[in-house]
Design a protein around this nucleic acid. Structure first.
Lengths: 168, 168
DNA sequence: GCTAACTAGTAGACTTGTCCACTACTCCAG
DNA sequence: CTGGAGTAGTGGACAAGTCTACTAGTTAGC
């Protein structure tokens, strides 16, 4: 599954605990990958069992002991395989579009409410993404450039959404 | 879950069999909702068990008997509740962005391959959506207008993606 | 001294979705 | 007259993800 690869990707950037993986899913990579805590820990032990990651228990600094996960050589191979393998578009699933599509029976005002709510959402998301963008280092290295690019993708999509909302 | 509402939405447009629901998921609503056949049939019987849909067995015209599902009054209520309830953005999960994000260790050429593959994908998707758009009735009624709008959303997003790809 | 917040991780039930194989009927082409 | 494509539906195993609740340590505020 993809979550396993995403976690490998994170571990490749730097060794970390499940807790830190979760934090990344809630912050840095939130705009393209979110995951449940329980699922993260389970995937992490799966990776360890498969020899793609290795654990080391470190004493906690101001807190409980930490199980730091490192990526292994095998893990790096698997990650690379994934990154270079053929990618097919995943099945689209957009609950907002679904609602809009089926809103034909609703009074005009309620459709507008739906759109207004979506606009508010999109605006706050845009603000968040732009804030994130500002916080990125200015003379970007290779990795940061890719990170910037994915972020720009998100920003562009939300902007398009706002334009579209204005049109409808 | 959302699939149940989507199916209710389809049944609200016209009564249909599980097979036809599946066909919609593969054609008309494919660009915002895809679903597995087995899941559709299971959801359909769940809807029936909950009294949101009712089944009527009709003789098959050139084929096996058809179990036509209708939406019930209760079903219509539930659908309306869903359409007007507060909507929160669902967790984003984009495997392509994930790959790109973690491609920092790859040689330049492979990143470009990834982008090229994505471009090809986006182009064929755009062609498909535009084809779909052309096939829509020209003097649109209310429902068709909404359908057009959701489709335009998809088209706009893919166009943005292509622009972004050209930029990167 | 108590409590809340943050860090760190575990356990189990449950839901949703996917995959695969199967039955069964009709029509059409070769 | 046989096989494939399209229609219509079922069953079971399994994978992936969610939700809730729990333990346990540290730090900081009241």
């Amino acid at each position: 599954m993809v979550l396993a690869r995403v976690i490998l990707g994170l571990l490749d950037l730097s060794p970390m605990t499940g807790y830190e993986v979760k934090r990344h899913c809630d912050t840095t990579i939130k705009y393209f990958w979110q995951a449940d805590k329980a699922q993260i820990y389970r995937t992490l032990s799966q990776l360890t069992a498969d020899g793609l990651a290795a654990v080391e228990t470190a004493p906690g600094v101001g807190g409980p002991a930490r199980q730091v996960h490192h990526i292994t050589e095998r893990g790096r191979e698997v990650l690379n395989d994934w990154l270079t393998s053929k990618l097919e578009r995943q099945p689209e699933r957009d609950a907002f579009l679904a609602r809009l599509f089926f809103s034909g029976g609703l009074p005009e005002s309620q459709v507008e409410e739906l759109l207004a709510a979506r606009r508010a959402d999109a605006e706050s998301l845009l603000a968040e993404l732009e804030e994130m963008r500002r916080s990125l280092p200015d003379p970007p290295d290779r990795r940061a450039r890719l990170r910037l690019a994915t972020l720009d993708y998100g920003i562009a999509q939300v902007r398009t959404e706002l334009d579209w909302l204005a049109d409808v």
